[in-house]
């Protein structure tokens, strides 16, 4: 059994990891298949009689103020949130890990310069930068939004990775690897990277939750996902004025956000444990 399959097997064996995997798989399935079988999320039904209907036959999760089916909107929004969240978190983690590894393994000027740059970037609030760019750039396509979120979210990971790398550099096995003639790149990828996998994974999973919430805030300001495309965060914010009278319009999207972030975190935690052979 290869180590990777062994890792997944370990994740499955733990109850928390299993729950997370199942939840994530269900959500992914929902996001993939849902939009194909459910009605159009932007279709406004009978505005006079079909608005703010509670959950019931015909509309499993009710309708919102413009009599659009809440379930359809959730499923479409989930798909978008998952794509944006996972893609940007992966990209951010990759970027941060690369910078951190380079800085950590090559001490001296390279390390200092890179980390000072990261410090300076960390001082600028992420939301501020996003607002600035999105306010100037009119209609941002989704891939650009993903890139933007990734480019503003890698700083923390790079510091984590750099710290771990510096610590590992002093470890004997790194010296031993050098002694057998391994090159710098090989050491970085083969020896250092697997050992920093744990903090990277945790940072990545936290990043997914961050991005989903960020996107909700941006949508509220009119800068994120444009209507009528549904977004989970946008649904929660749009429905706050009817929160008391029609709670299904904000509770269900909110629950889905929570569930998504939770399951990603659970899987990330379990994976981290699985990849650390000492705790197997």
């Amino acid at each position: 059994m290869t180590p990777r399959r062994a890792a997944l097997h370990t994740v499955w064996r733990r109850p928390a990891g299993r729950a997370g995997l199942i939840a994530l798989a269900l959500l992914a399935l929902l996001a993939l298949i849902g939009p194909l079988v459910l009605p159009d999320p932007t279709a406004q039904g009978d505005l006079l009689n079909g608005a703010l209907l509670p959950p019931g036959p015909g509309h499993l999760l009710g309708t919102d103020q413009l009599s659009r089916d809440v379930l359809s909107r959730i499923v479409t929004g989930l798909r978008l949130s998952l794509i944006i969240g996972l893609a940007s978190a992966c990209l951010a983690v990759a970027l941060g890990a690369a910078v951190g590894l380079i800085a950590g393994s090559r001490a001296g000027m390279v390390d200092t310069v890179l980390m000072r740059i990261v410090d300076a970037l960390l001082a600028i609030p992420r939301l501020f930068v996003l607002l600035l760019v999105l306010a100037v750039w009119d209609r941002v396509p989704i891939p650009a939004l993903v890139l933007l979120l990734a480019l503003t979210g890698w700083y923390g990971t790079s510091r984590l990775v750099r710290a771990e790398t510096v610590r590992l550099r002093g470890e004997d096995f790194v010296r031993a690897a050098e002694a057998l003639g391994a090159g710098r790149l090989r050491i970085a990828l083969h020896h250092l990277l697997p050992n920093v996998a744990a903090p990277i994974l945790v940072a990545g999973t936290l990043g997914v939750g961050d991005v989903i919430l960020l996107e909700a805030g941006l949508t509220y300001l009119g800068l994120g996902i444009r209507p009528p495309t549904p977004s989970l965060g946008g649904m929660v914010l749009d429905s706050r004025s009817v929160f008391v009278t029609a709670p299904w319009t904000s509770i269900f999207p909110g629950l889905v956000i929570v569930l998504t972030v939770l399951s990603v975190n659970l899987v990330g935690d379990a994976l981290r444990d699985a990849l650390d052979p000492r705790s197997a």
């Binding site: 050098e178 003639g181 996998a197």
Partner: peptide, 19 residues
């Protein structure tokens, strides 16, 4: 390194990559 001169380190627990 390794090709012409090989080195055996003192503590094999820390000299081997645990992962």
């Amino acid at each position: 390194r390794g090709g012409r001169i090989g080195m055996v380190f003192q503590d094999p627990m820390t000299s081997l990559n645990p992962v």
